[in-house]
Design a protein around this nucleic acid. Sequence first.
DNA 1: TTGTATGCGTTATCAA
DNA 2: TTGATAACGCATACAA
Lengths: 325, 325
Amino acid sequence: MAVTRKEVAAMAGVSVATVSYVINNTKKVTPEVRERVLKAAEHLNYHPNLVAKGLVTKETKHVAVLTDNIQNPHYGRILRGVQHVAEQEGYIVSVLSTNYSPKQTITELLSRNMDGIILALCFYVNHDFAAVLNVPMSYEDENLYTDYRQAIFDIVKTLKELGHTRIAYLSGFSNTVGHVRYFHLMDALAYYGLTPYEELIIPGDGYSDEAAGYNAADRLLETTRDFTAVLALNDMMAIGAMRRFWEEGLRIPDDISLVGCDGIKTTAFTTPPLSTIQCHAFHLGEALMSRLIAKIHQEEDDPPLPVKTIEAEFVQRESVGKAPR
Amino acid sequence: MAVTRKEVAAMAGVSVATVSYVINNTKKVTPEVRERVLKAAEHLNYHPNLVAKGLVTKETKHVAVLTDNIQNPHYGRILRGVQHVAEQEGYIVSVLSTNYSPKQTITELLSRNMDGIILALCFYVNHDFAAVLNVPMSYEDENLYTDYRQAIFDIVKTLKELGHTRIAYLSGFSNTVGHVRYFHLMDALAYYGLTPYEELIIPGDGYSDEAAGYNAADRLLETTRDFTAVLALNDMMAIGAMRRFWEEGLRIPDDISLVGCDGIKTTAFTTPPLSTIQCHAFHLGEALMSRLIAKIHQEEDDPPLPVKTIEAEFVQRESVGKAPR
DNA sequence: TTGTATGCGTTATCAA
DNA sequence: TTGATAACGCATACAA
């Protein structure tokens, strides 16, 4: 089997405790002994057993990321950010999809003594899990979030300057109002003196992929053709909508200006290239993990964690142009 | 802290061993005692500590998925398949990106007593890891793989019937020849009596995203314009190439027919919709995980695991059309 | 500065 | 059918 501390101790001619001391840098050890231990460990290719360690310290250095939709490239970027920090700090991360059985997921989390949880792109589970689990959690909240506000204001400003007045929104959520980007959009419309037409707000079916965007655009076209610009919840939906408009003979940007959100790589390569809100998903992932680690080690009377926002910028590409007529 | 077996035992008025027996169904227990234990466990909301269990059984029920490129949606589908069977079988999966430090990755794997490893979409690490780690591994090999052969033959057949004779290939790998799909393409060209023009085989730079496809198309155009059809290593590269051709004033499918590979969702929504090889990535993920579990429990003299292939189909969409002239 | 001994929550061996 | 109890590999209080 794997080599244990005992064998290292034997080879170095010290006790097992001493090996711990030097491996963990937890007590003063004479340099000469330290050297012997290190050499023995190296020679035997010793790797501390984190399972055993976790059992006694109650810290498994293992965290979970819960997610609905691992297929969205935007997630992938967040996850990479999470992993980047995790790796540096000696944590390992497991991805759990909440799709299957939330109950089983909770069991898993409890049984494994996970040190913490990151909720990424799970819009509905937060409360459920927070109630049941007594574990540090990290997710986008008022203290750490991507700030879309400026970008959305920039979009509306740009669209207005190009002559657009009737701007549609493809939401993705069945509960249209339940999302912060929607509020920013409403605020921006008001700020620039544009009317928010109710029939141009298209609720979704809970999905947010290309097909959802296609369908949302379809519903929009069924309702009215009196719009010249469209914002989509995310880039995938925008790509789906783009397809639907094309099929309808509507050209982008000649007939319709279109803007997505997230800034996935594909946006730069669509026909025409898709305007979007460039999110720094990698940074968000890093921040989520950093914050989780901070929470894990947070003492009762520590000061609260500082607020952090991740910036997002409007990236204008060819999918946005002058309003027709 | 969390409730342990001891407390369940106390409440049920039995020994800790008995609790184990009923929780794990590992020994005969009188129904009445069994009932008491179950009730106590339920009442205390007891969850077995898998960390402790892992320490004694040497089975952590924890596996790792190593990957280069977590951003590829195709990879997300594989991962979902992996997770699906993992969840059913009580395993948890951690995703490690090999990008950072392979050495650290190995340490991680060893320290955590992982039961096994899945290599997905890492093209270069297999040998390194196989040599160092003495752990069951699962990856696409001659016993389990996606079979592109028929699909590639179908593509070439279709292209030939449409009058294409000069077919380019955007490889993505710097070592062009090192990939099975390339061989299938060569075989298919030979089978249908088409000439494989060397200048139409474009090696890559090791990347395989949209930008890589864009660049590969760029290099192809620099070399020659004497081609009417293009196969790309994957869909993302095809999307990038599509963009490059568009910029050049070349229209798809009028001037060039284009085919990707993987069948990511976006392909159905590009302009024009992209022909591709539809892979069943979810099934592949399931198969990889099933096979890993089989390997974990495989005894010395067990029969070898059966060979399994995952089918892949050519999906023809508007990006393929008649050869010009 | 170093070693001894105990416990972490579980499984498994052996008695009862 | 059940119950003590010794591991598992490690951290740590305490002793030397």
